[in-house]
Simulated assay, not measured.
Amino acid sequence: MASESFFLQFGPGLVENDHSVRVICEIEVDDGKQPALARWHGPQAGWTFFPMQWMPVRLAQLELPQPCVFALGGDGTVGLGYGGYSEESINTTDTGPRGRGPLRVLRAIAGRLYAAGMGRQVYRRADAGVWEVLDPPKVPVPGEIDICGFTSIDGVDEDEIWAVGYRGEIWRASGLQWSEMASPTNLTLHVVRTFKKHLVFAAGKMGLVLGFVDDAWRVLAQIPGGEDIWDLEWFGGQLFAATSTRLFKLLPDATFEEVAVPGLTSFGYLHANDGVLWSFGTLQLAWTTDAIVWTAQTPTL
């Protein structure tokens, strides 16, 4: 395919290790748009593409009993495999995405997969093709018009799992028992990340960054310019925050400093693993091992 005949846009990605990365992408060609997963095999081998019949929204990976990558669709379809490929579904009834709105996030927590989305849906994968419903007690009934839901979920173990979403709502599950936490904002939160016990952050609209400090959520900072933050990542002992067009890092004085990345103007999502931090922008991809020197990686068909 000639380079002039297609256009690539990217979504969230997943760093499997320092030489294997996957990213959601959409290939726009003359006769329409093709969702796909692109995989980077390292600097020498380059990229391969796996066409999808539906558009994934998030990726996650489990290591045991064998490595497996999962892709989540908003309707609850889950594609999985590592070499082979199969699909399963999360809640096809009206109490699932069909009746309460799309799923937004997929996260591996303590070796198990969690999915969450609109209507405060929460699910945990109990076995192949089996997803348990773990909704909090406050959920709208199917068909009820109530703009609420989770945009992100995370935790380092199942004793403390966090979910955030619309209107600044924050929920905590301790032993899978949910309780709603007091939130210092009514702005939508796009992401919550737990990097270790007592190191928990959330961020979202207007560049607001929250931290869980002394058993309460507090406003830590607001990034310069007030752009929406779409993702957070911890790398090299520092917190990084990504907007659609800029990358920031949190300084010891609780202010954010923009990270200069020459040649990059498109950010959005971050993921770090195995000593590498990747930035997945809508139009550009790049990685670094020191958060100073960045290497652009542009997939080609």
Rank of each mutant, 00 (worst) to 15 (best):
P262N: 02
V156D: 15
L301N: 04
V259K: 01
V200R: 13
P97N: 15
R107Q: 12
A216P: 05
F49C: 14
S266E: 03
G96D: 11
D127G: 05
C148Y: 00
L208N: 00
S89M: 13
G79K: 07
A272T: 10
W40N: 03
G32R: 08
T93A: 13
A241S: 15
G83H: 14
V69A: 08
A221W: 01
G263R: 05
T92N: 08
Q34K: 15
V156N: 11
G74M: 12
G84D: 11
P136Y: 01
R246Q: 11
G101V: 08
D30W: 12
S244D: 14
G46L: 04
K138A: 15
H190A: 09
F240P: 01
Q222R: 15
V276I: 14
F280S: 04
V200L: 12
T282P: 06
D127F: 05
L134W: 07
G168P: 13
E257W: 00
W234F: 10
V191P: 04
D146P: 00
Q44F: 06
G275E: 11
I153D: 12
V122A: 09
I153H: 10
L247F: 09
V78N: 01
L239F: 10
D274I: 08
G204I: 04
E144T: 05
V261C: 13
V23D: 01
I292K: 11
G74V: 07
C68I: 04
I27T: 15
A202G: 12
A286T: 04
G225H: 03
Q222V: 14
Q34N: 12
M52S: 02
T93H: 06
A38D: 14
G268L: 02
R125K: 05
D146S: 15
E16P: 00
D290W: 01
V191Y: 00
V21R: 01
T48G: 04
G225V: 00
P299Y: 01
F201R: 05
R172N: 14
S152V: 03
E169V: 10
F256L: 10
V213I: 14
T151K: 06
R125E: 05
W217A: 05
